[in-house]
Simulated assay, not measured.
Amino acid sequence: MATPDRRTFLGTSIAGLAAAFGPPARAAETEASVAPPRSFVYPFRIGEVEAWSISDADLELGEGLDLMWPREAHPRMTELMQQHGESTATLPLYVNVLVLRHGNEVVLFDAGFGGRGNPKLGWLADGLASIGILPDQVTAGFLSHAHSDHLNGFISDGRPAFPNAAFHLLPEELAFWQGKDPDFSKSKRDKRPIPGMIDEVRRNFDILRSHTQPVKDGDKLLNGLVTVHAAPGHTAGHACFRIRSGNAELLHLMDLAHHHLLMFADPAWTIAFDHDPQTAVVTRRRFWSGAAERRTRCFGFHLPWPGLGHIVSDGPVYRWQAEPWRWLA
């Protein structure tokens, strides 16, 4: 792993920040003198539901296209990136947390990195405070998968960060991490941080055990507000979520896409963090096809903030069409 510099804040693994990015103290040192605003919060609505996109981090993955597979497609990836004025040396890491409020329910979809003593990440708590939501007001947390930028924000100082929230995830995700030997044999990621990552996930799951209420593919929760969709490949129990209110709908894509060009121009292009790349491709094609055909409004955890848009079919490929900002009064 290369050494972080002041320009790029190098990262190598979304899944294991402490292990793979290096110790938090070193990461904080990199950009300690550059403190961005502590919360970017975008309000919008899904029918009768109040919604916000809260940015939790501002990072760059310094490996750039070296994170992308297959290797033989790198010339095409490079051409695409250059056509759109995008850097191939680094890839942006947006971390957009979806928050809903409807009646007495306050719902999170993943919770970001959590507090790490680094000004470049862990902004969710400040974002929630800025819209008047206290941790004990959160009633439900949905976890797409257990990589650190999704799971760790559910933990604070060794305790559940949202003490009154039910914690929902697919049982396949629990089983994978809690099994005797979690299988990373198909993943292209650096294998060295994996033991530490597994230990961290297991500790966090133990902390959240009393709050955990597993859900199944197709389950509808909160009076039909949220539908759970199994979307395996990135991890064994990776999930997407569909939010419906009246005639309005939003499909949360979670980690089906890590880049606003690369995962759409060719759904067969994968990122090193996928546990099972071939399954991830099959899943992505299914979701892209359905969302494009139905013109479903979508939300992307790793797409440019605030992460709202549509997937558009463009001949044999797709493209991400970001939704214009509309600031609410």
Rank of each mutant, 00 (worst) to 15 (best):
M1T: 10
R6D: 15
R7I: 09
T8N: 14
T8C: 12
L10F: 15
G11Q: 10
T12R: 15
T12D: 15
S13E: 14
L17W: 15
A18D: 14
A19Q: 15
A19G: 13
F21M: 08
P23D: 11
P23Q: 08
P23S: 09
P23G: 04
A25E: 15
A28Y: 04
E29L: 14
E31C: 10
A35V: 15
A35Y: 08
F40T: 11
F40C: 12
Y42P: 09
F44A: 08
R45H: 07
I46P: 09
G47D: 05
E48K: 12
E48R: 12
E48I: 08
V49P: 04
A51N: 04
W52H: 04
S53Q: 02
S55E: 13
S55Q: 11
S55I: 04
D56G: 04
D58K: 09
L61I: 08
G62T: 00
G64M: 00
G64S: 06
G64K: 01
L65S: 06
D66I: 00
P75K: 09
E79L: 13
L80N: 06
Q83A: 15
H84V: 04
G85P: 00
S87C: 09
A89T: 01
L91Q: 10
L91V: 05
P92I: 03
L93H: 15
L98A: 13
H102C: 13
N104V: 10
N104C: 06
R116V: 12
G122K: 00
L124S: 06
A125N: 05
G127Y: 00
A129S: 10
S130D: 06
P135T: 01
P135Y: 03
P135W: 03
Q137S: 08
T139R: 07
G141V: 12
F142H: 00
F142E: 00
H145P: 07
A146N: 12
H147Q: 11
D149M: 06
D149A: 11
I155F: 12
S156I: 10
G158N: 05
P160Q: 05
N164Y: 02
E172N: 12
L174R: 13
F176P: 02
G179P: 02
D181A: 14
P182K: 01
S187V: 06
K188A: 13
R189D: 09
D190N: 14
D190T: 08
P193L: 01
P195E: 07
M197N: 11
R202N: 07
F205I: 15
L208I: 00
R209Y: 00
H211S: 14
H211L: 14
Q213P: 13
V215S: 08
V215M: 05
D217N: 14
D219Q: 00
K220F: 03
N223K: 15
N223C: 11
V226E: 03
V228C: 08
H229V: 03
A231E: 10
H234V: 13
A239R: 02
I243P: 12
S245N: 04
H252A: 12
D255W: 05
L262N: 06
D266C: 02
T270E: 04
A272S: 10
Q278I: 03
T279G: 02
T279S: 07
A280S: 14
R285D: 02
F287K: 02
F287L: 10
F287H: 05
S289I: 00
S289G: 15
R294T: 08
R294E: 12
H302N: 14
L303C: 06
P304S: 04
P304C: 07
W305P: 07
W305Q: 03
D314H: 14
P316A: 13
P316C: 10
Y318E: 01
Y318H: 02
W320G: 01
A322G: 09
E323R: 07
